[in-house]
Amino acid sequence: MKTKKFSKAHYDYLKLHRTKKILTLLTQIAILVAFFLGWELLSRFGVISSFFFSSPTRVAKLIGEMLRSGELIYHSRVTLNETLIGFAVATGVGFLVAFVLWYSNFLRQVSEPFLVVLNSLPKVALGPIIIIWFGAGDKAIIFMCILIVVIVTILNILNSFTNCDNQLIALGKSLGASKMQIFFKIVLPSSLKDIISTLKVNVGLSWIGSIMGELLVSKAGLGYLLTYGKQVANMHLVMTATVVLCLLASLMYFAVALFEKLMQKKLK
């Protein structure tokens, strides 16, 4: 392919395409720069109160201080731990349950109303119960995180499994494939795209789970920093924790996006 000669029009087309891509990226960077610059200038010239809004330089300074003291790493690690465990357990369990419910029509029909109700129930409402059962610690937070992620995972993945092309399953059956073979050779590969998009959704949900848990009950973590900062009216701390949270969440999202790219390469 690389040796193929194209017309000038094709190179023009490619150039236009690239220009558009660069323009998009530049605009995105410009928005970020404008946001932080505006924030900084507005608070520096007293248009907005730096007590309520903090400022990027103050946040950066605090990040530097907390990095040196090790506090930032410590709290980030606590939250990251809870999030990753919640994400992994909920995704794994959700996948397994979805498989079992796909396999057994009976169990699927039995569990359907329960899943629907559990899905519409705001899991935060179970916070008090979870704290009493698991104690005011990271166990409760992880459980909260799992609860928030697992139901959606089951529903999404099960939906993808049951929507598998019937004609392909008919082909498997005509070849005498067992139900396990149909799952691993036909249903699972067909669902790969949906599973990856479920992973992406789960990244966001597991952060919601762990921070929600930390806001309810915690002795450490970024959610703890948020609550603590709020209580002592230290907006610099609140903003810092928020910024760090944004950074970590984007990192995790990019990790999943990278995984998606690798899978796509493997698939095609």
Binding site: Q167, L168, A170, L171, S174, L175
Partner: peptide, 8 residues
């Protein structure tokens, strides 16, 4: 050997 309407 079964052959369908769609190539599947």
């Amino acid at each position: 050997g079964y052959m369908f309407q769609r190539d599947n």
